[in-house]
């Protein structure tokens, strides 16, 4: 028997899983290189959300010193970790987009199917000599 109250109270995890699967699906299913990068971003964002979720302490406030010893704080460490991961994500996206620009210049398209066709043509050009 599924405990609906429990399922609903963990809604943030469901959001994370949905985003994660959406992102992965886009990476696999879309042929447009920019859309793939968007998918990768959605996938990464789901992990950022995951880290932020696990750092939440029930009733806890933002981890800024209040001076009151009774204050309950949320765990700041995952926040810090995910800041790093966000930076890595930004760098990855920037590099990915830069590559797409270069691919567009070299191949004249950013559709995976067209690029594959061009690559096959290149291969069969070099093949007969081999």
């Amino acid at each position: 028997m599924i405990d609906f109250a429990q399922v609903l109270s963990h809604y943030n995890y469901w959001v994370i899983i949905t985003l994660m699967m959406t992102g992965l699906y886009i990476i696999v299913a879309r042929g447009n290189l920019i859309k793939k990068i968007v998918g990768l971003n959605i996938f990464q964002v789901s992990v950022f959300l995951f880290y932020i979720t696990i750092s939440k302490v029930a009733g806890g406030t933002a981890p800024i010193l209040t001076g009151d010893p009774d204050t309950v704080y949320s765990n700041p460490l995952p926040h810090v970790l995910i800041l790093t991961a966000i930076v890595v994500g930004v760098a990855t996206t920037a590099l990915g987009l830069a590559l797409v620009v270069r691919i567009k210049e070299a191949f004249g398209t950013i559709e995976e199917d067209d690029i594959l066709e061009i690559e096959h043509a290149l291969e069969s050009e070099t093949e007969p000599q081999a």
Binding site: L24, I27, F43, Q44, L95, V100, F107, I115
Partner: peptide, 14 residues
């Protein structure tokens, strides 16, 4: 090389 770097980027990041 560009497309192979792109593929590597996708898989590596995943």
């Amino acid at each position: 090389a560009l497309t192979s770097a792109y593929t590597y980027l996708m898989m590596g990041t995943i």
